[in-house]
Computed example of a mutant assay.
Amino acid sequence: MDTLSYKTVSLNSATVEKNWVIVDADSLVLGRVASEVAKIIRGKHKAGYTPNVDCGDNVIVINADKVRLTGKKWTEKQYVRHTGFPGGQRFETPAEAKAKTSRLLVERAVKGMLPKTKLGSKLIKNLYVYEGTEHPHDAQKPKEVKL
């Protein structure tokens, strides 16, 4: 007696269909953009989502230099890192990070929303962030996603 009408399908690296997606971050809030991008990179928007497989899409974020932060986050939020030496804790505000390159803001925000495992390290390589509107991925024919 076969009462099960649907079988659970788990994807693997051979059966995954990866697409290219482009996101315009012009005048959008950083956290809201990052959460949607992390969802697309992880593959949670697909019906065949499998938690232990890289089944998400490749994401191109353009206009990263025009992303917004709400409130006083430009000056009061702090990114913390450690050099590995005694007394080596270093602090940086988003304004200081943007002065170096505004790609860091989007990359850090998305990386923080991905798993802290080997899979997360693979997934972050599917993110491509550019400060302006130009990108070298025209050959992949990315589809634009409105957030």
Rank of each mutant, 00 (worst) to 15 (best):
M1W: 06
M1L: 14
D2E: 15
L4G: 14
S5C: 14
K7D: 13
T8G: 08
T8H: 12
S10D: 10
K18F: 03
I22H: 07
I22F: 07
V23T: 01
D26K: 15
D26V: 01
L28K: 01
L28V: 01
L28W: 00
L30H: 05
R32I: 06
R32H: 12
V33R: 02
E36G: 15
E36W: 11
V37A: 06
A38F: 09
K39N: 13
I40G: 07
R42K: 11
K44L: 12
K44P: 14
K44Y: 09
A47P: 02
A47S: 12
T50K: 03
N58D: 05
I60D: 09
N63W: 05
D65P: 00
V67G: 06
L69A: 06
L69E: 03
T70S: 13
K72W: 00
K73I: 00
K73F: 03
K73H: 03
W74Q: 08
W74V: 10
E76C: 04
K77D: 09
R81I: 13
R81Y: 13
H82A: 08
G84N: 09
G88H: 01
T93M: 02
A95Q: 11
E96T: 12
K100W: 07
T101V: 12
S102L: 05
R103S: 08
R103F: 04
L104Y: 12
L105I: 09
V106L: 09
E107R: 11
R108C: 03
A109Y: 03
A109V: 07
V110K: 01
V110E: 00
G112V: 00
K116W: 00
K122P: 02
L123N: 04
I124Y: 04
N126V: 06
V129Q: 01
G132Q: 04
T133K: 14
T133S: 15
H135K: 06
A139Y: 01
Q140K: 14
Q140E: 15
K143C: 11
